[in-house]
């Protein structure tokens, strides 16, 4: 534990700005991954443990696209759509057969894919760390803010994620698709009886969730180095976010992601070795006080 360092940082505005912006970035990426996770759980009742690997795939897809086209925007599109397509195929072929099995079966299918995808990435992209570098579009001088400096890309990432969160909540709460999604979350049979193609709906939701993870990977690419293990840690963290926010709640995921991001950023100064422990302790506390999470609905 390093309390003096933490106090030092808190008393300096430039350090606070740096840490808060770092925390926000972590939070935004976490939200993108966790919102997909929570959406899939809320509607399909499946915890997609491969979600971290989807994030990783998004990053690598965008890396390749960036190297080929040289355009970062193409890279983001490639990462998001590529993973969305992959997610739909994955859901149809491997997840749908275990919808009615117990949780452990679903868990194992996901686990198998975590192992497989990690190795596939190793085979295709190699085991070494890879970096995309800051795309030319964002290679601008940092923005001066509250006595600190913030890279422009951070602002872009945060803005984009907030926009995504907003569109997502409009999509779920205001559109016909959202109505179907919410209905499916409550009673799938009923929806089938009403003539809705629920298989299609499930695939769409899974695809949307995967798209978010892929986009997160692509957005992380300029600021994170890539390695075949990158899926694991984000999986655990986004899982914590999902649980703290309330499984199935998108607003919950947003707040929890920001919270965890900030804890992470400041914890890495004060308790570098214990930040994981801190997050798990926080999660345990939330579970014990309110098992359905901060924003979770009461379970029937």
């Amino acid at each position: 534990m390093n309390l003096p360092a933490l106090l030092d940082c808190v008393s300096s505005s430039s350090c606070v700005v740096t840490q808060v912006s770092t925390g926000l970035i972590i939070g935004m990426l976490l939200f993108l991954v966790a919102s997909g996770l929570t959406l899939i759980f809320g509607v399909l009742g499946v915890i997609n443990f491969t979600h971290g690997s989807f994030y990783m795939l998004g990053a690598y897809f965008s890396l390749t696209a960036y190297r080929v086209t040289g355009s970062y925007f193409d890279a983001v599109i490639a990462g998001a759509l590529g993973v969305a397509v992959f997610g739909v195929v994955f859901e149809r072929l491997f997840i749908s057969p275990v919808y009615n099995s117990n949780v452990l079966m679903q868990l194992l299918v996901c686990y198998a894919f975590i192992l497989i995808l990690d190795d596939v990435v190793k085979i295709v992209w190699g085991t070494d760390f890879q970096t995309m570098g800051m795309p030319a579009t964002f290679a601008l001088p940092p923005i001066h803010l509250f006595g600190g400096f913030v890279p422009p890309f951070y602002v872009f990432l945060t803005g984009l994620t907030v926009a995504a969160a907003f569109s997502l909540s409009v999509l779920v709460n205001k559109t016909r698709f959202g109505k179907l999604v919410r209905a499916a979350a409550v009673n799938r049979q009923m929806l089938s009886c009403l003539g809705v193609n629920t298989s299609l709906l499930y695939a769409a939701v899974f695809g949307l969730g995967s798209l978010l993870a892929g986009a997160a990977g692509a957005l992380a690419a300029p600021v994170r180095s890539m390695s075949p293990e990158m899926g694991f840690s984000i999986l655990i963290e986004s899982f914590i976010v999902t649980v703290i926010g309330g499984m199935g709640s998108i607003i919950g995921a947003f707040f929890a992601a920001v919270l965890v991001g900030i804890i992470r950023a400041f914890g890495s100064i004060g308790y570098p070795l214990f930040t994981d422990g801190l997050m798990f302790a926080f999660m345990a506390l939330v579970l014990l006080v309110k098992p359905t999470g901060l924003f979770g609905r009461k379970l029937a």
Binding site: V109, Y111, A112, F113, V120
Partner: peptide
């Protein structure tokens, strides 16, 4: 991991 994953599946 690849082989183990496939066996698991």
């Amino acid at each position: 991991g690849l082989v183990m994953g496939i066996v698991l599946l």
